[in-house]
Write a protein that binds this DNA or RNA. Sequence first.
DNA 1: GTCTATACTGTGATAGAC
DNA 2: GTCTATCACAGTATAGAC
Lengths: 205, 205
Amino acid sequence: MIALPNRDRRSERREATRREILNCAWQIARADGLAAVTLRGVADLMGMRAPSLYSHVASKNAIYDAMFGQAWREWSAALAAAALTAPAEPRRALLAAARLFVDFAAGDPARYQLMSQPAIPNFIPSAEAYAASLEAYAQMADALRGFGVTAPADIDLWTALITGFTNQQLANDPGGERWRGQLPRLVDMYCDEVGIAGPALRSSP
Amino acid sequence: MIALPNRDRRSERREATRREILNCAWQIARADGLAAVTLRGVADLMGMRAPSLYSHVASKNAIYDAMFGQAWREWSAALAAAALTAPAEPRRALLAAARLFVDFAAGDPARYQLMSQPAIPNFIPSAEAYAASLEAYAQMADALRGFGVTAPADIDLWTALITGFTNQQLANDPGGERWRGQLPRLVDMYCDEVGIAGPALRSSP
DNA sequence: GTCTATACTGTGATAGAC
DNA sequence: GTCTATCACAGTATAGAC
């Protein structure tokens, strides 16, 4: 009988290289933009030849795909960490969530660009990676449900409002406050519309 | 003394070829997406060789640039044709403008993708092409001013709301009504917020 | 399993002949 | 103006060394 090691060092190392590939890709994306990620560039950073990457990833789009899923999972984690389930002050909680999203996007524009399709030509997230974004959506929907918002239309309204503000902020005033500064007003508008009570945020941002 | 022709047939023909290049590029973009536009593809459609295009266009990005300006001028024309200066019923006018924008975007997703940066890697609209988008912005701002909306923040609010709805509609329910159908509600929210009077649209869409 | 060398295809772009 | 030829660079497929 052969003693099986309780840890598979081989697959551990394999996972580590895969992670390193993603890290190098992120590094390039952050520095020079998403489109600047090339297999040769990633390979250079790793001290490898470009074709060698195919031992660990199926294609370049597979790298984007993994990054896409990773990005949405990071957002889910950030939202969960914020623990905005404060039913006592729903408007403040929603404002915090909105600011969190804008700041999350502004903190890594390349990441946000990848999250909001269609950033890369010919890249369509796989069902598995897309599931990560759906989970983040469900997470936000849950939070809204905690505030009494259940109608799908009301949830659609929220997503359109927040992403609209985020896109405008990043595209026209990156790092500024032109739209971000209006978030209290936006959250008030939304809460008034969907019937979330509480004191207005506008006067006391 | 040499008789100068009163029309420059040469430059007329030159302009015609340039237009044809753009038309072929649009044709490809509409059929297979913006990224599918290839110099060889355009040249094929024109019965030319790819390098010959450089006699009429400085680069591939110059083609995108011309398309960008053209797209925004088309939107300006569409908005002007709508003649939404109906101060009697501002809410209806704004709803018409909002629907016009969503439909304009949905009518040619590739065009809208190009209008909303950053659609193509390494493509940044030239100052001249960008001016076309600024003019469209000024046009909308003028219309809003006609309804008493003058604060820059209020105009920013409008753009974020409309583009947010449009993006969500195209990305998650292309050709549908999921967000488009909520436009009356959105316009009401906006008008209530910025102080545009009139009967609510919600009940009578 | 992991990496390399080589090579194929397609891209935007340039040079120079006609 | 348009052509042919060619370049540099991309993603990727394959064969084989270790």
